[in-house]
């Protein structure tokens, strides 16, 4: 491939690449939806993925969540200093965990763990012609590989987020009673004070969307893999970076829809 250093060409190339990718993404989603009846019939494939994405990610999510909650507590207390009464500590920790930290940090951790694994697995299958082999056996890779991962992402991210919310709040509670001189009674009262179930649903909706993004980006990057082991490495990195960026951008978009005036 001849290298072209003309900046206009580079910008043009990147722009067409962007639209090409957006189009391919749309086609991928369309094909998943068309293949949904088959995927439901073969639900054991999805269950396998749910086990890997959900159950096996749980220990990692527990560790990150307990510390996230702890940090939220410490930082909130610091920001409150003498101006805001400590009885609002639980409110601050609860709101920030349920609305933002729970879903987003869980998604970022899962993007690193699962998104990378999906891209690496499908990428290896691509470069060793296993994807082609699947097609020659008259089996559609979208139905057999992508859809199970996509559905599993949609289901398991909200589930993981519920765990994460709970454990992060527990972490916040522990830190505030042990190190911040706030009793668990005060903390829990604060938590209940402005608690709304709709906030939890909003957080879970975010998680649902993030789960779809992680699986789709992982699969997409896997399918695009070219060029042996090096290519697999590149796809894996790209999958994690792209999923993380898309999670943060979508987070903003969803937040402005859900909570904007």
């Amino acid at each position: 491939m001849p290298r072209n250093e003309n900046p206009l060409r580079v910008i043009g190339g990147k722009t067409t690449l962007f639209f090409e990718m957006a189009g391919e993404f749309a086609i991928l989603i369309k094909n998943i939806l068309l293949g949904l009846p088959v995927s439901i019939k073969k639900f054991h494939l999805t269950v396998e993925q749910m086990l890997f994405m959900g159950v096996n990610s749980l220990p990692l999510i527990m560790i990150t969540s307990i510390f996230t909650g702890g940090v939220a507590s410490v930082q909130a207390a610091y920001m409150f200093s003498d101006y805001v009464p400590m009885r609002y500590l639980g409110t601050a920790v609860g709101k920030s965990v349920i609305l933002e930290l729970g879903p987003v940090l869980t998604a970022l951790v899962v993007a690193g763990r699962v998104g990378a694994a999906i891209a690496a697995e499908l990428g290896t299958m691509k470069v060793t012609e296993q994807i082609d082999a699947l097609e020659t056996l008259a089996l559609d890779p979208v139905k057999y590989l992508v859809a199970p991962r996509f559905i599993s992402g949609l289901i398991m991210l909200p589930v993981l987020t519920i765990f994460s919310d709970f454990i992060a709040i527990l972490g916040g509670l522990l830190v505030s009673t042990l190190f911040l001189n706030v009793s668990s009674f005060t903390f829990l009262n604060g938590l209940k004070l402005f608690f709304r179930m709709s906030d939890v649903w909003a957080g879970l909706l975010k998680a649902f969307v993030f789960g779809g993004i992680i699986a789709l980006v992982g699969c997409y990057m896997g399918f695009r893999t070219e060029g042996g082991a090096e290519g697999v490495g590149r796809s894996t990195t790209r999958a994690v970076v792209m999923a993380s960026v898309m999670i943060l951008i979508t987070d903003y978009i969803l937040a402005s829809f859900l909570f904007g005036s």
Partner: peptide, 18 residues
């Protein structure tokens, strides 16, 4: 996909599902 059921293919690296 229907047509491919009449075909078999042996790949260079075998492409067995690992």
């Amino acid at each position: 996909y229907d047509l491919r059921k009449r075909f078999g293919m042996l790949f260079q690296g075998s492409a067995l599902f690992d």
